[in-house]
């Protein structure tokens, strides 16, 4: 169930190369699961911008976004106190019940944010998540400390080797064992590599260009083993078993 509301920008600060963390204040009662997203109206742009919820509480939502185009550029310049029109409660989110004691959380670049809220939710259920994050370079890395503060194991890879393990998340995952389920969000090529490498079951959060974000336009449809599915409505999180590549 979604809801359109006004939110106030409480903070908006750069946390890595082109990456910003924004805290929004307003109604969060429609958010039910980690991995859901919000759809933000930005002045002068016709379509809203979908961004994952990093974490939330009774009155605030934290998002992390990368400046990749004109809309996110405008977003990065918004000052504290700016009012935004946002749809919340979108998407299905991750199902924390599907994992046992030691779920593996894999985030790639700005696919990392939803892993943070998920990590908190899993810890609350008494689980011990293992977190693997992949970035291009040291200047892109963010939220390492935030994850460590939750008391979980965190492994980081960078493609150029300037921080953590040189290579990809899969290079780290190959050295890990004992996990029983995985959750992941990140660029398509990373998701595919993870999908091919890991044998246990898992959930993957996908991305598509969206028209509405509420399931009305069929703009974001992917083909799955169960037939056509809308990323914004039936997803963005899909079971490993339903995906076709």
């Amino acid at each position: 169930m979604y809801k359109k509301n006004k939110y106030t920008v409480r903070s908006n600060k750069q946390i890595a190369n082109l990456v910003y963390e924004m805290v929004l204040e307003g109604d969060t009662s429609y958010i039910t699961k980690p991995g859901q997203f919000i759809n933000i109206e930005i002045d002068k742009f016709y379509l809203r911008r979908p961004i994952s919820i990093c974490t939330y509480d009774e009155s605030t939502i934290t998002i992390i976004y990368k400046v990749v185009g004109e809309g996110t550029e405008v977003l990065s310049n918004l000052k504290e106190g700016t009012i935004l029109d946002i749809l919340t409660g979108l998407g299905n989110g991750f199902d924390t019940r599907r994992s046992k004691e030691r779920p593996l959380l894999i985030g790639g670049g700005v696919g990392t944010p939803p892993m943070y809220g998920l990590c908190k939710a899993l810890i609350k259920e008494g689980k011990k998540p293992v977190v693997v994050l992949g970035f291009n370079s040291k200047s892109d890395v963010f939220y390492e400390k935030e994850f460590k503060d939750l008391g979980v194991e965190v492994y980081i890879s960078t493609v150029d080797g300037s921080y953590g393990t040189k290579g990809f998340v899969t290079d780290i995952i190959r050295t890990l064992n004992g996990y029983d389920f995985y959750y992941t969000c990140g660029p398509m090529n990373m998701l595919k590599a993870v999908y091919e490498l890991i044998e246990t079951s898992g959930e993957l959060s996908l991305e598509e260009r969206m028209g509405c974000g509420i399931g009305a336009c069929m703009g974001c449809t992917i083909n799955t083993k169960n037939g056509p599915r809308r990323v914004c409505y039936n997803g963005p999180v899909f079971k490993k078993e339903e995906l076709v590549w």
């Binding site: 598509e208 260009r209 969206m210 703009g219 449809t221 056509p228």
Partner: peptide
């Protein structure tokens, strides 16, 4: 099924 994505 319709067309491949991106559709928007």
């Amino acid at each position: 099924f319709g067309n491949p994505t991106p559709r928007i």
